[in-house]
Design a protein around this nucleic acid. Sequence first.
DNA 1: CCGCAAGATGTGATCGGTCATGTCTCAAGC
DNA 2: GCTTGAGACATGACCGATCACATCTTGCGG
Lengths: 338, 338
Amino acid sequence: MATTPKRRLPVMADVAKEAGVSHQTVSRVLNDHPNVRADTRARVEEAISRLGYRRNLVARALVTKRSRMLGVVSFDTTLYGPASTIYGIEQAARTAGYFVSIVSLKSLDATSVRAAIDYLTEQGVDGVVVVAPQRSAGRALESLPSGTPAVAVEGTHRADVSVVCIDQFEGARLATRHLLDLGHETVWHVSGPPDWLETEGRLAGWRTTLEAAGRPVPPPLPGDWSPRTGYEAGRRLAAMDEVTAVFAANDQMALGVLRALSEEGVKVPDRMSVVGFDDIPESEFFSPPLTTVRQDFDAVGRRCIEALLRQIDSGPVAYERLVVPPAFIVRSSTAPAR
Amino acid sequence: MATTPKRRLPVMADVAKEAGVSHQTVSRVLNDHPNVRADTRARVEEAISRLGYRRNLVARALVTKRSRMLGVVSFDTTLYGPASTIYGIEQAARTAGYFVSIVSLKSLDATSVRAAIDYLTEQGVDGVVVVAPQRSAGRALESLPSGTPAVAVEGTHRADVSVVCIDQFEGARLATRHLLDLGHETVWHVSGPPDWLETEGRLAGWRTTLEAAGRPVPPPLPGDWSPRTGYEAGRRLAAMDEVTAVFAANDQMALGVLRALSEEGVKVPDRMSVVGFDDIPESEFFSPPLTTVRQDFDAVGRRCIEALLRQIDSGPVAYERLVVPPAFIVRSSTAPAR
DNA sequence: CCGCAAGATGTGATCGGTCATGTCTCAAGC
DNA sequence: GCTTGAGACATGACCGATCACATCTTGCGG
């Protein structure tokens, strides 16, 4: 009963009265301003805990014009990549004292991305991270009202939107190089869906490495990240006798390839080597364990937050492009050419 | 230049002046209140778009005491289950006009869960969804100040916190029954980590089904959801000649089991049948494609939001327990006993 | 042609904090 | 002894919306 004499939650004024000071002093204590005498501070703190007072961050946001909330717009958060990136973002944001509000989109056309950003902005976020590795999504950022702090993961080239990305080109180069070094004449590629920047980066890394080595560049087999398309590509590859090495643009598709090859009786890695991309937790236990390219999504998330907070704190900064290097993980799905 | 005569973003008063009405009328238009003449409404709307006015939701939240934001506390959002559930929650919340703020925890002890909830509450969320399928997390909910709308996914038994869950017991029963029906003498089980409600539900469903059929109940092999522990369990199972059927508590561990069996030369499903739980997108392409129990996470997300909004709109409601039925998916990892 | 209720609009208070500024006290410096 | 300045607080305005209530129009029955 003593705890709830009135229904209303206690506010600063209540604490002030309880402690016998002004609301301003309570505010000073809360924001630990130096100019408060120790005993006054103690009295206020006691009053706070006695009343169970909690500061109302909405009211504070209204006057400071800082909500301490960040928005994240992402494509299908069920996928391993986005999910991991968002996890990293959330962790980093929270340690920096920020909340994260998420909008996940099933379609990443410029319109929906813009709508999502507007939505978040209206709600008062201090900045936005767009995990939208598609060209079309990048375009949405280009029309962003300048002044809104924003960071993109893998996208856009607009001068005042910073970008954090993993070096896709380098990852693809590592994968292709690895296979060539094993003595394979050339490397086939199962690519991601068009319009994705990752698709393009991996495609370019693969193609360039092949060309630099003077090897034939076979036509890439189209995929959409799903195991199913990898499976379909795998069946086609199994039928071609000359194919000895395949680089799939992600681990799920590599899994599909593995499945198809196994069905067709094509032994991996004896008759064919397979490399993936992402290093999802399952890859290590595929049959056989998958050689792949690891992406450090946590680092991406951290970098995003760092870059975003920099913009929020010190205004628009020069365009930055933060590149996180990939790591190459060799397991048992690759072997020397026969 | 005409667009930004002053730096400040336009506020309601600006729109009012522009349209030659009072701020209150602008508010009426925005909240489409009926008592506004059509032409006035049009004038206001025109002024709004001319000025590029966006309503400040923070200010609105301050006076309405409704932020239209929901909080979600979840364990490791990188896992397929939580990620999918959150995706469902976010979609449902957005269509209902709510934002979602997420906190993901690496540890789910009662203290951190409480801290996370407090954190979200302080920030003004209208309600909280706790995706915390662990006993310890459930305990955190029990000490929740009553009056805070909350819904738990798979957890707690507190009378005023609604629960949405998938029928784990039934899923495990389906899996076990399927294997027994195929003629297996008994079914071994690779369980999830202790303290998880899913672990307990699946364990109970498995055990009960076995007992009801009068079959021996072998000791469950402990796992932690990761493929690695499934792999370790798989090696042990491969060494035991009498084992012909295994039910792993999730697909990742089933993958590990599959891997170990393949290494040991134990053919699946010829010599051993394996069933998983979750139906992750990869399962269909395991070697062999995995027979498993599908969980409808989207439905779980939707139900959570429905239950939560019900609480927010009409105050504390009677305890509800919404159970989503699982589906059994037969693929190629199971076969009749030899 | 008046009265009066419903409809259309305006006015000022309010939400719960922070910010700018003012007042008072007290020790240091001349 | 009196100025000076910094520390410790208090006071009132303000952020940008909504809410309660007041006021001014209308339309319509009598």
